[in-house]
């Protein structure tokens, strides 16, 4: 067998085994998306109710001057929570988030703020350590299956730093929003201080009713706001987990498709090489036989 033929055969085998792996990854990711979506759905009612409650308190109390709702006059530092994944093999998922985070950093620095990144997910943490960037906090190990306790831990760190005089004055979050299996968008949101919109009441069904408070509005707000931030972070983590799997499924699908295409091309090359080899052998045999026949004819 010719050397070229053997080389091609070996490459086809290696591409085939790669395709097997990526195909398996694709299937695993598909089944995980469903579960991640279910977890997302399960967290929705809580988030909706807590948002409603916060809206209710904020729009019913005349003087809202809780530290978590009031923007500082001269903000000096901003915290950015960057939600990435722990493992790779998910296409541009992390690159997209990090690119958006860099854009936000530029924007905030343009406003004269110092930016402190808070990073979740091993990929984001490695990205920052590689560049020697200091992080305000880093969490890894739960990007695929975030628990509420993880969100709580992150929220505690952020709120702690926010309440601290020398800490951060704004909190932004950069994460991936799960729209559908095919669409995931990187979104940037400011979670603290809350943005209070002065709106005219137009639609009666959406106006939060007038609340009585037990024990009083300030204390309700005091314990409600941290929960609200936790819930927002938890939602971001869950959405990011679902998006990660969707991105992984897509990346693995195109990897499998590419591998199959490569196998097709290589098989064609291999067949061509084999055919060329056979043709050459035949022409050698024919040439040899002709030479013998000519030699025999010359003797006579």
């Amino acid at each position: 067998m010719g050397a070229q033929l053997r080389l091609l055969r070996r490459r086809i085998n290696s591409v085939k085994s790669t395709a097997k792996i990526t195909r398996a990854q694709e299937l695993i990711a598909s089944s995980r998306i469903v579960r991640a979506q279910q977890r997302m759905q399960a967290a929705l009612p809580y988030e909706r109710e807590i948002t409603r409650a916060v809206t209710g308190v904020v729009s019913n109390t005349v003087s809202v001057d809780h530290p978590l709702t009031v923007a500082k006059e001269n903000p000096a530092r901003a915290g950015v929570l960057i939600v990435t994944s722990d493992s790779g093999f998910c296409g541009g998922f992390n690159a997209n988030v990090l690119r958006e985070a860099e854009a936000l950093r530029g924007l905030l620095e343009g406003r004269g703020l110092d930016v402190t990144p808070f990073v979740t997910g091993r990929k984001g943490v490695t990205w920052h350590t590689f560049r020697g960037r200091d992080m305000g906090g880093q969490w890894t190990g739960f990007s695929r299956k975030p628990a509420y306790a993880d969100a709580k831990e992150i929220a505690d760190t952020l709120i702690g730093s926010f309440k601290d005089e020398n800490g951060i004055d704004e909190i932004h979050i950069v994460s991936t929003e799960f729209v559908s299996m095919l669409t995931q968008n990187v979104v940037v949101k400011r979670i603290l201080p809350l943005e209070i919109e002065e709106t005219e009441a137009t639609d009666t069904s959406t106006i939060p009713p007038y609340f009585e408070f037990e024990p009083n509005a300030d204390e309700v707000l005091e314990s409600l706001l941290p929960r609200y931030v936790e819930s927002r972070i938890f939602t971001a983590l869950l959405q990011s987990a679902a998006s990660e799997e969707a991105a992984r499924r897509r990346a693995m699908k195109s990897a499998t498709d590419n591998a199959n295409e490569l196998i097709r091309v290589l098989t064609q090359d291999m067949n061509q090489a084999r055919q060329a080899e056979i043709t050459q052998e035949i022409s050698e045999i024919v040439g040899g036989a002709n030479a013998l026949a000519d030699a025999a004819a010359g003797k006579e």
Binding site: G56, P209, F211, E212, F213, E214, P215, E219, V220, S223
Partner: peptide, 20 residues
């Protein structure tokens, strides 16, 4: 049970937000 004490809510209760 809220921090203020027990609260019983019957139908058509006024809007309340309490800390448990």
């Amino acid at each position: 049970k809220t921090v203020e004490g027990e609260i019983g809510i019957l139908p058509r209760h006024a809007p309340v937000l309490g800390v448990l």
